[in-house]
Amino acid sequence: MYSRAYKSLVSIPPIAWVGVLLLLPYALMFVHSLWAVREGVIVHQWNWENYKTLFTNSLYAKVLFRTMRIAASVTLCSILLGYPLAYYLAFHAGARKELLYQLVIVPLWVSYLVRGYAWKTILGSDGVLNGFLQYLHLTHEPVGFFLYSPFAVVLMLTHIYTPFVFLPIYAALEHIPRPLLEASQDLGAGSVQTFWRVILPLSMPGLLAGATFAFVLSLGDFLAPLLVGGPSGTMIANVVQSLFGAAFDWPLGAAISVGILVITISLLFLGELLEKRWAFK
């Protein structure tokens, strides 16, 4: 087979990649979270103060809680949009399947930033939506809460992450052997029962994968709140950004980052566990 030297040689790039670009930065981040800032300078003084602040200062807990709420809303909305779409494409789209599939994928090629600014144009005080509502005489003044609110963040993130939820669900639905659906009908189940008893359980791994994508990606997002969130839509990544930037408190920023990392890893682990629970091979 392959020589030992060859095996070690080919394993260098992936190990280097993970080591230099993943483990090293995480280690640096963790080390920073145990330091402190004195008079605008980072001092290498080992302490747990940053983590104490994280747990005692209600501001951070509040933002973190809001972030989780937004991420959960995005996940839920993406599933509510993505699942029916995937279901329709997998089972009922017929000849339109290819076209619709492409239409779902194409937005992924458009820059995140462009889509963010598009939502600003739609939701703003003199934006498309307000203009339309006033044209219909449904409102007389521009509605302010469309833009710069958690609502706007959820809307934008849902728009961005729905394809990520759609794709794994669609793949799971496409893989369900069609005779299983006939077997279900044959045994007396109508389409509603077939959905709950066969289709949903068998698409669960895809659903969980999609939900994990949407939740984890939303959790760490900082552009959407920056563009359309306003003060009431600030998320935890924005706090980290400002701590590393204007506030120049890298140690506290690093501590929060470690916190987010722990939450994310736990969620990925949980998602994996559930997916295994639902895998049938």
Partner: peptide
């Protein structure tokens, strides 16, 4: 009649047992 209302049952070629 739709299939689920027929008093007919099928043994499928590759059995089509529910894997879950």
């Amino acid at each position: 009649l739709p299939p689920y209302k027929r008093r007919v049952n099928t043994v499928f070629q590759n059995y089509a047992l529910f894997p879950h």
